[in-house]
Protein backbone atom coordinates (compact mmCIF):
# COMPACT_ATOMS: atom_id res chain seq x y z
CA UNK A 1 0.00 0.00 0.00
CA UNK A 2 1.48 3.29 -1.06
CA UNK A 3 0.66 5.99 1.38
CA UNK A 4 2.01 9.45 2.15
CA UNK A 5 3.73 8.08 5.22
CA UNK A 6 5.43 5.52 3.08
CA UNK A 7 6.75 8.23 0.78
CA UNK A 8 8.14 10.24 3.69
CA UNK A 9 9.84 7.12 4.98
CA UNK A 10 11.38 6.45 1.60
CA UNK A 11 12.65 9.99 1.21
CA UNK A 12 14.09 9.94 4.69
CA UNK A 13 15.79 6.63 4.09
CA UNK A 14 17.17 7.91 0.82
CA UNK A 15 18.57 11.05 2.41
CA UNK A 16 20.06 9.10 5.26
CA UNK A 17 21.70 6.61 2.91
CA UNK A 18 23.12 9.32 0.70
CA UNK A 19 24.39 11.24 3.70
CA UNK A 20 25.91 8.11 5.13
CA UNK A 21 27.58 7.24 1.83
CA UNK A 22 29.16 10.66 1.49
CA UNK A 23 30.43 10.74 5.06
CA UNK A 24 31.57 7.13 4.93
CA UNK A 25 33.44 7.61 1.65
CA UNK A 26 35.15 10.71 2.97
CA UNK A 27 36.09 8.89 6.16
CA UNK A 28 37.34 5.90 4.22
CA UNK A 29 39.52 8.01 1.96
CA UNK A 30 41.10 9.65 4.99
CA UNK A 31 41.39 6.32 6.75
CA UNK A 32 42.97 4.66 3.72
CA UNK A 33 45.51 7.45 3.44
CA UNK A 34 46.31 7.15 7.10
CA UNK A 35 46.58 3.34 7.05
CA UNK A 36 48.74 3.35 3.95
CA UNK A 37 50.91 6.11 5.35
CA UNK A 38 51.55 4.26 8.58
CA UNK A 39 52.30 1.06 6.70
CA UNK A 40 54.83 3.01 4.64
CA UNK A 41 56.57 4.91 7.44
CA UNK A 42 54.84 8.17 6.69
CA UNK A 43 52.30 10.29 8.52
CA UNK A 44 49.85 10.86 5.70
CA UNK A 45 47.68 13.99 5.79
CA UNK A 46 48.48 16.04 8.89
CA UNK A 47 47.61 19.64 8.14
CA UNK A 48 43.85 20.01 7.75
CA UNK A 49 42.18 19.33 11.10
CA UNK A 50 43.35 16.86 13.75
CA UNK A 51 45.76 14.48 12.04
CA UNK A 52 44.34 15.61 8.72
CA UNK A 53 40.80 14.54 9.60
CA UNK A 54 39.32 17.29 7.44
CA UNK A 55 41.59 16.58 4.49
CA UNK A 56 38.80 14.77 2.65
CA UNK A 57 36.48 17.74 3.14
CA UNK A 58 39.08 20.01 1.63
CA UNK A 59 39.53 17.58 -1.25
CA UNK A 60 35.81 17.46 -1.91
CA UNK A 61 35.65 21.26 -2.02
CA UNK A 62 38.58 21.25 -4.44
CA UNK A 63 36.92 18.66 -6.66
CA UNK A 64 33.64 20.59 -6.63
CA UNK A 65 35.38 23.73 -7.78
CA UNK A 66 37.47 22.06 -10.44
CA UNK A 67 36.80 22.55 -14.09
CA UNK A 68 35.03 19.66 -15.74
CA UNK A 69 37.13 18.84 -18.79
CA UNK A 70 35.73 16.69 -21.54
CA UNK A 71 38.08 15.35 -24.19
CA UNK A 72 37.01 16.62 -27.61
CA UNK A 73 36.97 13.18 -29.15
CA UNK A 74 35.05 11.58 -26.28
CA UNK A 75 31.70 9.96 -26.94
CA UNK A 76 29.73 12.70 -25.16
CA UNK A 77 26.70 10.83 -23.86
CA UNK A 78 28.48 7.67 -22.86
CA UNK A 79 31.22 9.68 -21.26
CA UNK A 80 28.77 11.84 -19.36
CA UNK A 81 26.58 9.01 -18.09
CA UNK A 82 29.33 6.64 -17.03
CA UNK A 83 29.97 8.06 -13.54
CA UNK A 84 26.29 7.80 -12.69
CA UNK A 85 26.12 4.21 -13.83
CA UNK A 86 29.08 3.51 -11.61
CA UNK A 87 27.62 5.15 -8.51
CA UNK A 88 23.87 4.58 -8.62
CA UNK A 89 23.92 0.76 -8.33
CA UNK A 90 26.13 0.86 -5.27
CA UNK A 91 23.79 3.40 -3.68
CA UNK A 92 20.81 1.21 -4.52
CA UNK A 93 22.42 -1.78 -2.85
CA UNK A 94 22.02 0.02 0.46
CA UNK A 95 18.32 -0.76 0.40
CA UNK A 96 18.88 -4.18 1.91
CA UNK A 97 21.92 -3.56 4.11
CA UNK A 98 20.83 -4.21 7.72
CA UNK A 99 22.56 -1.71 10.01
CA UNK A 100 20.54 -3.08 12.93
CA UNK A 101 17.26 -4.85 13.58
CA UNK A 102 15.24 -1.76 12.74
CA UNK A 103 17.71 0.26 10.74
CA UNK A 104 17.29 -1.19 7.27
CA UNK A 105 15.63 0.73 4.47
CA UNK A 106 13.63 -2.30 3.45
CA UNK A 107 14.08 -5.94 4.36
CA UNK A 108 13.26 -7.49 1.01
CA UNK A 109 12.56 -11.18 1.12
CA UNK A 110 14.88 -11.58 -1.87
CA UNK A 111 17.61 -9.40 -0.34
CA UNK A 112 20.64 -11.45 -1.40
CA UNK A 113 19.32 -11.90 -4.91
CA UNK A 114 18.67 -8.15 -5.14
CA UNK A 115 22.23 -7.36 -4.14
CA UNK A 116 23.69 -9.81 -6.63
CA UNK A 117 21.65 -8.28 -9.39
CA UNK A 118 22.19 -4.65 -8.58
CA UNK A 119 25.92 -4.69 -7.89
CA UNK A 120 26.57 -6.32 -11.25
CA UNK A 121 25.40 -3.16 -12.98
CA UNK A 122 28.48 -1.21 -11.82
CA UNK A 123 30.60 -2.83 -14.48
CA UNK A 124 28.53 -1.14 -17.18
CA UNK A 125 29.50 2.25 -15.79
CA UNK A 126 33.16 1.34 -15.74
CA UNK A 127 33.08 -0.05 -19.24
CA UNK A 128 31.20 3.02 -20.49
CA UNK A 129 33.88 5.22 -18.97
CA UNK A 130 36.62 3.23 -20.65
CA UNK A 131 34.87 3.22 -24.00
CA UNK A 132 33.52 6.74 -23.97
CA UNK A 133 36.80 8.42 -23.04
CA UNK A 134 38.21 7.49 -26.42
CA UNK A 135 41.57 6.94 -24.82
CA UNK A 136 43.53 3.76 -25.42
CA UNK A 137 44.65 3.41 -21.84
CA UNK A 138 41.08 3.91 -20.62
CA UNK A 139 39.81 1.39 -23.13
CA UNK A 140 42.28 -1.20 -21.92
CA UNK A 141 41.26 -0.44 -18.35
CA UNK A 142 37.57 -0.72 -19.20
CA UNK A 143 38.05 -4.02 -21.02
CA UNK A 144 40.03 -5.42 -18.14
CA UNK A 145 37.43 -4.26 -15.64
CA UNK A 146 34.58 -5.85 -17.57
CA UNK A 147 36.42 -9.15 -17.92
CA UNK A 148 37.52 -9.18 -14.32
CA UNK A 149 34.24 -8.21 -12.66
CA UNK A 150 32.23 -10.67 -14.70
CA UNK A 151 34.71 -13.47 -13.95
CA UNK A 152 34.69 -12.89 -10.24
CA UNK A 153 30.92 -12.49 -10.06
CA UNK A 154 30.57 -16.25 -10.32
CA UNK A 155 32.60 -17.34 -7.26
CA UNK A 156 31.15 -14.38 -5.38
CA UNK A 157 27.58 -15.42 -6.05
CA UNK A 158 28.29 -19.11 -5.47
CA UNK A 159 29.72 -18.38 -2.05
CA UNK A 160 26.70 -16.22 -1.22
CA UNK A 161 24.36 -19.00 -2.32
CA UNK A 162 26.09 -21.40 0.06
CA UNK A 163 25.16 -19.06 2.89
CA UNK A 164 21.61 -18.82 1.64
CA UNK A 165 21.35 -22.59 1.63
CA UNK A 166 22.48 -22.88 5.22
CA UNK A 167 20.42 -19.93 6.45
CA UNK A 168 17.40 -21.08 4.52
CA UNK A 169 16.42 -17.57 3.46
CA UNK A 170 17.26 -14.83 0.99
CA UNK A 171 16.35 -12.09 3.43
CA UNK A 172 19.30 -10.29 4.99
CA UNK A 173 17.66 -10.04 8.39
CA UNK A 174 16.80 -13.74 8.46
CA UNK A 175 20.43 -14.54 7.61
CA UNK A 176 21.55 -12.42 10.54
CA UNK A 177 19.03 -14.18 12.80
CA UNK A 178 20.36 -17.54 11.64
CA UNK A 179 23.76 -16.60 13.03
CA UNK A 180 22.48 -16.07 16.59
CA UNK A 181 24.43 -19.00 17.94
CA UNK A 182 27.44 -19.14 15.66
CA UNK A 183 28.89 -16.76 13.08
CA UNK A 184 28.87 -18.36 9.68
CA UNK A 185 32.60 -17.82 9.24
CA UNK A 186 33.11 -20.31 12.10
CA UNK A 187 30.46 -22.66 10.74
CA UNK A 188 32.36 -25.70 9.43
CA UNK A 189 30.38 -25.77 6.20
CA UNK A 190 30.82 -22.09 5.45
CA UNK A 191 34.38 -21.18 6.41
CA UNK A 192 35.59 -21.88 2.88
CA UNK A 193 32.72 -19.90 1.40
CA UNK A 194 33.77 -16.96 3.58
CA UNK A 195 37.32 -17.16 2.26
CA UNK A 196 36.14 -17.36 -1.35
CA UNK A 197 33.83 -14.44 -0.75
CA UNK A 198 36.54 -12.16 0.57
CA UNK A 199 38.89 -13.01 -2.32
CA UNK A 200 36.22 -12.53 -4.95
CA UNK A 201 35.01 -9.35 -3.27
CA UNK A 202 38.52 -7.88 -3.39
CA UNK A 203 38.50 -8.51 -7.11
CA UNK A 204 34.97 -7.12 -7.47
CA UNK A 205 36.00 -3.78 -6.04
CA UNK A 206 39.23 -3.67 -8.05
CA UNK A 207 41.65 -3.50 -5.21
CA UNK A 208 45.22 -4.79 -5.10
CA UNK A 209 46.23 -7.57 -5.74
CA UNK A 210 43.38 -7.50 -8.24
CA UNK A 211 43.50 -3.85 -9.27
CA UNK A 212 44.39 -4.43 -12.90
CA UNK A 213 41.67 -2.12 -14.28
CA UNK A 214 43.41 0.82 -12.65
CA UNK A 215 46.94 -0.58 -12.65
CA UNK A 216 48.78 2.64 -12.02
CA UNK A 217 52.14 1.44 -13.15
CA UNK A 218 50.85 0.30 -16.54
CA UNK A 219 47.65 2.09 -17.43
CA UNK A 220 48.24 5.33 -15.52
CA UNK A 221 44.72 5.37 -14.02
CA UNK A 222 42.77 2.99 -16.22
CA UNK A 223 39.18 3.80 -17.01
CA UNK A 224 39.03 7.14 -15.19
CA UNK A 225 42.15 8.66 -16.73
CA UNK A 226 40.20 11.31 -18.60
CA UNK A 227 37.81 12.30 -15.84
CA UNK A 228 38.33 15.35 -13.70
CA UNK A 229 36.46 17.32 -11.07
CA UNK A 230 33.18 16.01 -9.81
CA UNK A 231 32.97 13.18 -12.34
CA UNK A 232 36.21 11.79 -11.05
CA UNK A 233 34.83 12.26 -7.55
CA UNK A 234 31.81 10.18 -8.54
CA UNK A 235 34.05 7.27 -9.52
CA UNK A 236 35.92 7.63 -6.30
CA UNK A 237 32.66 7.73 -4.36
CA UNK A 238 31.44 4.68 -6.23
CA UNK A 239 34.66 2.82 -5.51
CA UNK A 240 34.58 3.47 -1.79
CA UNK A 241 30.85 2.79 -1.59
CA UNK A 242 31.46 -0.53 -3.28
CA UNK A 243 34.17 -1.33 -0.78
CA UNK A 244 31.71 -0.54 1.99
CA UNK A 245 28.99 -2.63 0.40
CA UNK A 246 31.07 -5.76 -0.06
CA UNK A 247 32.36 -5.45 3.48
CA UNK A 248 28.85 -4.88 4.84
CA UNK A 249 27.66 -7.97 2.99
CA UNK A 250 30.58 -9.94 4.36
CA UNK A 251 29.64 -8.74 7.83
CA UNK A 252 26.02 -9.71 7.34
CA UNK A 253 26.62 -13.06 5.73
CA UNK A 254 29.60 -14.31 7.66
CA UNK A 255 30.28 -12.23 10.78
CA UNK A 256 26.85 -12.27 12.37
CA UNK A 257 25.73 -8.87 11.10
CA UNK A 258 24.76 -6.36 13.77
CA UNK A 259 24.63 -8.95 16.52
CA UNK A 260 27.02 -8.57 19.43
CA UNK A 261 27.11 -8.09 23.18
CA UNK A 262 27.05 -4.81 25.16
CA UNK A 263 27.42 -2.25 22.39
CA UNK A 264 24.39 -1.13 20.36
CA UNK A 265 23.80 -3.16 17.16
CA UNK A 266 24.74 -0.37 14.79
CA UNK A 267 28.11 0.02 16.52
CA UNK A 268 28.77 -3.68 16.13
CA UNK A 269 27.83 -3.53 12.48
CA UNK A 270 30.13 -0.61 11.77
CA UNK A 271 33.01 -2.05 13.77
CA UNK A 272 32.86 -5.31 11.85
CA UNK A 273 32.44 -3.63 8.48
CA UNK A 274 35.27 -1.15 8.96
CA UNK A 275 37.35 -3.98 10.34
CA UNK A 276 36.99 -5.85 7.09
CA UNK A 277 37.71 -2.70 5.11
CA UNK A 278 40.88 -2.14 7.12
CA UNK A 279 41.88 -5.71 6.37
CA UNK A 280 41.34 -5.05 2.65
CA UNK A 281 43.49 -1.93 2.94
CA UNK A 282 46.21 -3.87 4.69
CA UNK A 283 46.21 -6.36 1.83
CA UNK A 284 46.18 -3.58 -0.73
CA UNK A 285 49.24 -1.84 0.62
CA UNK A 286 51.24 -5.02 1.01
CA UNK A 287 50.92 -7.16 -2.10
CA UNK A 288 52.00 -6.66 -5.69
CA UNK A 289 49.46 -6.93 -8.46
CA UNK A 290 48.64 -9.98 -10.55
CA UNK A 291 48.79 -9.91 -14.32
CA UNK A 292 45.57 -9.91 -16.26
CA UNK A 293 45.83 -13.47 -17.59
CA UNK A 294 46.89 -14.82 -14.20
CA UNK A 295 43.89 -13.09 -12.69
CA UNK A 296 41.48 -14.68 -15.14
CA UNK A 297 43.16 -18.05 -14.77
CA UNK A 298 42.80 -17.82 -11.03
CA UNK A 299 39.10 -17.03 -11.33
CA UNK A 300 38.14 -19.64 -13.90
CA UNK A 301 40.58 -22.43 -13.22
CA UNK A 302 40.67 -22.30 -9.47
CA UNK A 303 38.16 -20.15 -7.66
CA UNK A 304 35.04 -21.05 -9.63
CA UNK A 305 35.56 -24.86 -9.55
CA UNK A 306 36.38 -24.69 -5.85
CA UNK A 307 33.25 -22.71 -5.10
CA UNK A 308 31.13 -25.12 -7.15
CA UNK A 309 32.63 -28.00 -5.24
CA UNK A 310 32.05 -26.21 -1.98
CA UNK A 311 28.44 -25.58 -2.97
CA UNK A 312 27.90 -29.24 -3.83
CA UNK A 313 29.49 -30.50 -0.62
CA UNK A 314 27.49 -28.09 1.55
CA UNK A 315 24.35 -29.14 -0.31
CA UNK A 316 25.08 -32.81 0.33
CA UNK A 317 25.77 -32.16 3.99
CA UNK A 318 22.48 -30.28 4.29
CA UNK A 319 20.56 -33.13 2.67
CA UNK A 320 21.81 -35.60 5.21
Amino acid sequence: MFTFLNLIFMVMAGVMVLGFIAVSAMFLIWWERKVSAHIQNRYGPMRVGWHGALQSVADVIKLLLKEDIRPTKADAWVWWLAPFFAVVPSVMAFVVIPFSKELIPRDLNIGVLYIMAITSVCVIGIFMAGWGSNNKYSLLGGMRAAAQIISYELPLILSMITVVMVANSLSMQKIVEAQSRCWFIFHPNLALAGLIYIIAATAEVNRTPFDIPEAESELVAGFHTEYSGMKFAMFFLGEYTNVFIVSAIATTLFLGGWKGPLLPPIAWFLIKTYGIITFLMWVRWTFPRLRVDQLMGFAWKFLTPVSFLNLAIVGLLLLK
Binding site: S36, I39, Q40, N41, R42, T208, P209, D211, A215, E216, S217, R284, W285, T286, F287, P288, R289
Partner: peptide
Protein backbone atom coordinates in the same frame (compact mmCIF):
# COMPACT_ATOMS: atom_id res chain seq x y z
CA UNK B 1 60.76 -2.83 -9.31
CA UNK B 2 58.18 -3.83 -6.70
CA UNK B 3 56.32 -0.61 -7.38
CA UNK B 4 56.23 -1.48 -11.06
CA UNK B 5 54.71 -4.81 -10.17
CA UNK B 6 51.92 -2.98 -8.39
CA UNK B 7 53.01 -3.26 -4.78
CA UNK B 8 51.90 0.27 -4.49
CA UNK B 9 54.64 2.41 -2.93
CA UNK B 10 55.22 0.30 0.19
CA UNK B 11 58.50 -1.37 -0.85
CA UNK B 12 59.58 1.87 -2.49
CA UNK B 13 59.07 3.78 0.73
CA UNK B 14 60.91 1.10 2.66
Amino acid sequence: FAQDLGAFATPLFY
